[in-house]
Design a protein around this nucleic acid. Structure first.
Lengths: 342, 342
DNA sequence: CTGTTAGCGCCTTCAC
DNA sequence: GTGAAGGCGCTAACAG
């Protein structure tokens, strides 16, 4: 590998092929009329020289790069990862390329800043449009298309796709309630996230509807990680009067909870029923199948791509805010509440 | 958000500040002589207008973007994800930005092609250098710096950082052997990956050194996923003469194996000892702590960044191929082999 | 069908 | 200290 620069340009190709740059440009962009013969000759030269057009130059001229950007906080969160997957898959169908920027879970303090910084760095320059996952910034200074997935703030200044978190949580709770459970623990997510807040709301609302008084002890604040889920569950099961069911605000927490319960010598769902939220891949085979609320994360990515591409192509956009439906997925971690003898 | 283009350029700033473009350019790049007063005035205008310089234009002129690229097959593989994390962290220290391209685990067939395509799309254009994770391509046509992490092929045409897979596998096996195990199962990784091959070699070599004949039934070919790990373990434990220990070629497989064993009513490490490979985050708390071989994945990312930056800055590079050491991490999934009564 | 001519937004001499 | 002019690699008219 040559260590130093020597990029071959369109000029080199033109010279080698004995034509003008514009002709080369034409074949590069599959433009209209180029003689069969010249076309093939140029193609051959391109291959021989190993020429690739410069994204930078192309972008500058044509203001159109066919690459879309994705800005994401932290790939460790399965939510983000799954959105990326969905976006990826959707992108592949279309004639776009994808560039991801991620802060790698760096200090939350600076993230909102970097988020905005990246948006303006990329958008309109190297990128035709941007998707931001769980943005913390409330606004972006870009003159180019942007859509958000699951924004933290409610007041979005831009198109967004968000899950029906509250409704989803309520469907989980109704399932548990329907099974006869009355004492239901909750393992929450990071309280600064809109999604976590809405799920907690769903929990509370369901309880209220069922006329069950809220017991603060039953609400544990987690952070969407398996480890914290484990800890929260430990607290829940060592309560004087322990819950007969736990609703975890995401699958990772639920998995941690199952671990904690099992390690404590209790059984799921024998002693405690568990419902998660997200339906990540693992959920289908963990502990024989985790009952959870499917929020079609990958689909959220797909929808975001569709919205963005419409924006880019100046097509009308149906819903400024797309609310992704959720659906309860009953598997094997819940059972009807059976009061102990006595 | 304005739906249509209206990017503010350096010209707009110059006009608004009543100076020439070159002066604005100077303050943008913190160049030498600019009057304190003009400097601050221009800064103010920049903020007011929300100006961001165009990456594309800058790159084209100065051939230097301070952006490094990362090309990675599949973010679902924890290996890749952890490399990304390591790279991310390393990048943050330096004055570089990071752009990731991922194929999202798309068809393996086309991946080698897209890999190369992306490298030439980005490198030298928008990117000062590129790190490729587990590249399948054997060569890249780029005239700019590139380093590989854990390349599939052995014959690398470019600088690389790779784990000491064979040695690491042997340390795992020696641990098991030292514990008195003689019948040790192996759950492999994808046989087209160099790393999987080397770990299998380590398994075989250790057995040979210990004068234990190879039993093909004990070798199950997995694919580094938890699910396949589960399946492979099921086969292993239903063998007529079942192994007393299993060495899994990565942690995900090991975790799947533990699940399978537990579900079958056996205990880990009571009935079967388990060793993994990778030391992913989960390993530390799964089943009370998985004994595994730490390969310092995030560090591999860090080293790759260091190598790349040296290349970019034309500094001498110490090792063309950096071999990351591994270390056995003893936790709680192994115990000495205790022959059954009789 | 193909070449010529302008720039895209920015940085870099080189004058003033 | 600051401005003017040229050109990075490419595409988009407009001529031939």
């Amino acid at each position: 590998m040559p260590r130093k620069k020597a990029a071959v340009t369109i000029q080199d190709v033109a010279a080698a092929a004995g034509v003008s740059v514009s002709t080369v440009s034409r074949v590069l962009n599959n433009k209209d009329d180029v003689a069969e013969e010249t076309y093939e000759n140029i193609q051959r030269v391109i291959n021989e020289l190993g020429y690739t057009s410069s994204l930078a130059a192309k972008s500058m001229r044509s203001h159109q790069t066919n690459v879309i950007g994705l800005v994401v906080t932290d790939l460790n969160q399965s939510f983000c990862l799954n959105v990326v997957k969905g976006v990826n898959r959707a992108i592949e169908q279309l004639d776009y390329d994808l560039l991801v920027y991620t802060g790698g879970g760096s200090g939350d303090r600076t993230w909102a800043v970097r988020e905005r910084q990246y948006v303006s760095l990329l958008n309109g320059s190297i990128t035709d449009g941007i998707i931001v996952v769980t943005p913390t910034a409330e606004t972006f200074s870009t003159h180019y298309p942007l859509v958000a997935v699951d924004p933290h703030l409610d007041s979005t200044d831009f198109p967004a796709v968000i899950a029906t978190n509250r409704t989803g949580a309520m469907s989980a709770m109704e399932h548990l309630l329907g099974l006869g459970h009355r004492r239901i623990g909750f393992i929450g997510g990071r309280p600064d996230l809109q999604s976590a807040i809405r799920r907690l709301e769903g929990y509370k609302d369901s309880l209220r509807q069922a006329d069950i008084p809220l017991d603060p002890d039953l609400i544990q604040i987690g952070d969407f990680t398996q480890e914290r889920g484990y800890r929260c569950a430990q607290k829940l099961i060592t309560l004087p009067e322990r819950p007969t069911a736990i609703f975890a605000a995401n699958d990772k927490s639920a998995i941690g909870a199952i671990e904690a319960i099992t390690n404590a010598g209790l059984s799921v769902p024998g002693d405690i029923s568990i419902v998660g939220f997200d339906n990540i891949e693992e959920a289908s085979y963990v502990h024989g199948g985790l009952t959870t609320v499917d929020q079609f994360i990958a689909d959220m990515g797909r929808v975001a791509v569709e919205m963005l591409v419409n924006l880019i192509q100046n097509k009308p956009i149906e819903n400024y805010v797309y609310r992704m439906p959720t659906r309860l997925l009953v598997r094997n971690t819940c059972q009807a509440f059976a009061p102990k003898a006595g």
